[in-house]
């Protein structure tokens, strides 16, 4: 840029404003010299506007860190699993990757009371369950001399890491042992679709599964009733065993504890650790379900005792049981096992 000559009209810190002979006002870099004052005619160059890379880089770094941090935080705090806890109060908790509770809501009045007394958002799952059960004991939802049933249901979203069923049962056991309470703990797993349907129905996933199984068994019960009543009372009134019912898997994932399997009896001595049924191996097409330790250990008799048979996950084959006189399939007592495609999905 060519040098500009002009009369100084204003002096700033590093620049000056000059009036050029052709009537232009220009800003020039202040030349060296002590006797600069307004009125002096100088020749100089416009100030070079340096592009300030350093602040720009700092700003970009800060933005990058903030953005990355926010993304990481969002990733870490996103709900990856839901756990519902049903006693009579029903509470549903959303867990993040670190198994911290990110959201919690009471699904009935009792659930709201529990959450009001024990705020669990931001608390690890273990602490949250401990707080909720302590409040449940204090509010007499769980009583020492009564028959207590706790139904916990785990729903994992999009193949995210889910809380271990055994660990979850330990989390529930520990506060109960401290309080010396008898309790039947049933832990089940539900598919995300079931959770969605349960949320639409205003129920916990556990209660929704229970409702489905009761209705399929022909028990007359409404969603309002199942949401209102406690687990123990439902067992008494409907003459059912929740542990047994939940053993009839619809999704084929997880295994509910049989009645009496998880029972903590208060005694003067330290209570023995609760015996927990390990989760079942996911159903493979063409194989019957077995335990983790011995996948080949099938239970055909138990399955065949149910006249309706039991269903595999949608889209897979289903095992049907028909009572026939012949014994070509090798089944016992004249019953025949055979596989066929699921009617519902048509696959």
């Amino acid at each position: 840029m060519p040098a500009v000559t002009g009369m100084i009209v204003e002096i700033k810190q590093h620049t000056c404003i000059v009036l050029t002979p052709d009537g232009d006002f220009r800003e020039l870099s202040l030349p060296a010299g002590d006797d600069l004052q307004p009125g002096r005619v100088i020749t100089g160059n416009p100030p070079v506007r340096r592009f300030l890379w350093q602040p720009l880089l700092i700003a970009a770094s800060v933005l990058l860190l903030l953005g990355g941090g926010m993304l990481y935080r969002g990733w870490m705090t996103r709900a990856v699993a839901y756990i519902s806890l049903d006693i009579n109060p029903s509470v549903e908790m959303a867990l993040d990757r670190r198994e911290f509770v990110r959201q919690a809501r009471g699904l009935n009045n009792g659930g709201a009371v529990l959450l009001n007394e024990a705020p669990v958002v931001g608390v690890p799952l273990k602490g949250a369950i401990n707080s909720l059960l302590q409040v449940a004991v204090r509010e007499h939802y769980l009583q020492p001399e009564a028959h207590n049933v706790i139904l916990a249901t785990v729903t994992t979203l999009n193949n995210q890491p889910s809380p271990d069923v055994q660990v979850l049962q330990q989390y529930i056991n520990q506060p109960l042992q401290k309080c010396r309470l008898n309790a039947e703990i049933v832990v089940d797993q539900a598919m995300p679709g079931v959770l969605r349907q349960a949320q639409q129905a205003g129920l916990s996933a556990g209660r929704y599964l229970l409702l489905q199984r009761l209705q399929s068994k022909g028990v007359d019960i409404s969603s309002g009733e199942i949401n209102r009543e406690g687990m123990a009372r439902l067992e008494q009134e409907k003459h059912i065993n929740i542990g047994e019912l939940m053993a009839r898997k619809q999704g084929g994932r997880g295994r509910a504890a049989a009645p009496g399997e998880v029972r903590i009896t208060p005694s003067p001595e330290p209570a023995p650790p609760a015996r927990v049924k390990k989760p079942a191996v996911p159903m493979q097409s063409g194989y019957l379900r077995g335990d983790v330790d011995s996948p080949r250990k099938v239970e055909p008799l138990r399955v065949m005792k149910h006249p309706e048979g039991w269903l595999n996950p949608p889209g897979q084959h289903e095992l049907r049981v028909k009572d026939r006189g012949d014994d070509r399939s090798g089944g016992n007592r004249g019953e025949k096992l055979f596989w066929r495609r699921n009617r519902n999905t048509g696959k």
Binding site: V9, E10, K12, I17, D22, G23, D24, F25, R26, E27
Partner: peptide, 16 residues
């Protein structure tokens, strides 16, 4: 102000 004039004064000779 002079600084304002430096900013708004037309730079092209004809416009000026």
């Amino acid at each position: 102000k002079f600084a304002g004039l430096a900013a708004c004064a037309p730079k092209h000779r004809d416009a000026r």
